[in-house]
């Protein structure tokens, strides 16, 4: 009788473990990219403030997506990207959102760096374009993964005008 109860206890223990594992898998799958950019992307020095236009999104291999942000004149911006993909060549470009679509920055021409800072003299609409290259042999191909874009800004530092005396 005691042996039978022990067997039941073991079976219940295994069941409990299975429920926990199952629950964890479901929970993990349900996770979105909530605050991914704030946890994973590189922060600039503390002269910058977090900019509310930062965001994260789900990407798959071979996908390109863009978002349009607004920058003000007389301000500096620091933009960093971060991603869960195991590759290192996720491309990000800054494109001025005008008729010319001027490419302001392309990390493919800068060793696929994940951050850039710039000063801006006039207000501009800027497109941030993220491209994850296709990897036909990647084991996680087809699995959506997070990409974050973290934006910080500050007022551009103005050199004080030389003034004689106190």
């Amino acid at each position: 009788m005691l042996k039978k109860n022990n067997m039941h206890m073991k079976a219940l223990g295994k069941l409990g473990l299975l429920v926990i594992i199952f629950g964890w898998v479901v929970f993990a799958k349900a996770q979105d990219c909530y605050y991914f950019h704030e946890y994973q992307c590189k922060f600039p020095d503390n002269t910058y403030y977090l900019n509310g236009q930062s965001r994260s999104a789900l990407f798959t291999y071979g996908m390109t997506s863009q978002f349009k942000m607004v920058t003000f004149g007389g301000e500096d911006y620091h933009i960093s990207i971060c991603y869960q993909f195991k590759i290192k060549n996720v491309r990000f470009r800054l494109i001025e959102d005008n008729e010319d679509k001027t490419v302001l920055f392309d990390n493919a021409e800068n060793k696929y760096v994940t951050e850039v800072s710039f000063s801006n003299n006039v207000a501009r609409r800027i497109i941030i374009e993220i491209s994850v290259p296709d990897e036909p042999t990647a084991k996680d191909r087809g699995v959506p993964q997070c990409v974050g874009v973290l934006i910080h800004s500050r007022k551009t530092y103005q050199e004080p005008k030389n003034k004689l005396g106190f």
């Binding site: 403030y49 978002f67 349009k68």
Partner: peptide, 17 residues
């Protein structure tokens, strides 16, 4: 392009500006 998202400065950023 697959999709486009729009972002805009927050009220705090507008008043700081």
């Amino acid at each position: 392009f697959q999709s486009v998202y729009y972002r805009f400065p927050t009220p705090n950023e507008v008043f700081s500006f």
